[in-house]
Simulated scan of single mutants.
Amino acid sequence: MVRDVICAVLLLSGALFCLLGALGLVRFPDLPTRLQAATKPQTLGLLLVLAGAAVRLELGDALALGLAGLFQVITAPVLAQLFGGVAYRTGACEPSVLVLDELDERLRADRR
């Protein structure tokens, strides 16, 4: 009974985080904020769903889910960083909405 409740709470909270991330992708106005919505809540949501599923599985299968979660945690921020950098360099990011533009300062320093 306790495992069922823990599993349900983890699965539902993970699904809620995934839903909030999807809403952020639709509602946020610019690329950097959409990248935030695509990585942080989606990754946390997936980890919670995997943890909820792992509660119900045997240890070997749960370790495989842990590897899938680890792969997601490693790759999602790296890809978001790469996409953000490419979008910035190609002009897809609107400079007027950036509060602090550290990349522009670094690119100017590299050109000197």
Rank of each mutant, 00 (worst) to 15 (best):
11 L>K: 02
98 L>V: 08
77 P>M: 08
8 A>K: 00
46 L>K: 01
23 L>M: 14
31 L>H: 07
49 V>R: 10
7 C>S: 15
13 S>E: 09
82 L>I: 14
108 R>P: 07
112 R>I: 05
12 L>H: 01
77 P>D: 09
108 R>L: 15
73 V>S: 12
1 M>N: 13
34 R>Q: 08
20 L>R: 03
80 A>T: 11
20 L>E: 02
75 T>H: 07
36 Q>W: 08
66 G>E: 01
41 P>L: 05
74 I>V: 11
98 L>R: 07
37 A>M: 03
49 V>A: 14
47 L>T: 03
102 E>C: 05
51 A>Q: 10
98 L>S: 08
72 Q>P: 01
107 L>T: 02
96 S>L: 06
84 G>K: 09
20 L>W: 10
92 A>H: 12
14 G>A: 11
27 R>D: 06
81 Q>Y: 14
75 T>V: 14
78 V>H: 04
77 P>W: 00
26 V>E: 08
38 A>G: 15
91 G>S: 04
69 G>V: 03
112 R>A: 13
85 G>Q: 13
89 R>T: 11
30 D>K: 09
77 P>H: 09
25 L>N: 08
7 C>N: 12
10 L>G: 01
28 F>C: 11
99 V>Y: 14
103 L>A: 15
10 L>Y: 08
71 F>P: 06
38 A>V: 02
43 T>I: 07
81 Q>P: 07
22 A>C: 07
80 A>Q: 07
5 V>R: 06
56 R>P: 02
78 V>C: 09
40 K>H: 10
11 L>T: 02
82 L>P: 05
105 E>Q: 15
79 L>R: 02
27 R>V: 04
62 A>K: 00
62 A>Y: 04
63 L>Y: 01
26 V>W: 15
74 I>D: 06
39 T>E: 09
98 L>Y: 09
65 L>P: 00
40 K>R: 12
27 R>K: 10
80 A>P: 08
54 A>Y: 03
16 L>C: 07
70 L>A: 15
57 L>C: 08
83 F>V: 13
7 C>R: 01
106 R>P: 03
36 Q>M: 10
35 L>V: 01
43 T>N: 11
71 F>L: 14
25 L>P: 01
63 L>C: 04
110 D>L: 14
30 D>G: 13
65 L>V: 06
76 A>D: 04
54 A>V: 06
37 A>P: 00
88 Y>D: 10
18 C>K: 07
12 L>M: 13
40 K>V: 09
100 L>P: 04
29 P>S: 14
3 R>P: 10
8 A>S: 12
55 V>W: 03
91 G>R: 01
101 D>V: 02
69 G>M: 00
26 V>N: 07
74 I>L: 12
55 V>G: 04
25 L>Y: 04
44 L>A: 12
29 P>G: 08
79 L>A: 14
10 L>V: 00
86 V>W: 06
47 L>N: 13
11 L>Y: 02
73 V>I: 15
2 V>A: 04
35 L>I: 05
2 V>C: 05
40 K>Y: 11
23 L>I: 11
102 E>T: 14
57 L>V: 06
76 A>V: 07
68 A>V: 12
52 G>R: 02
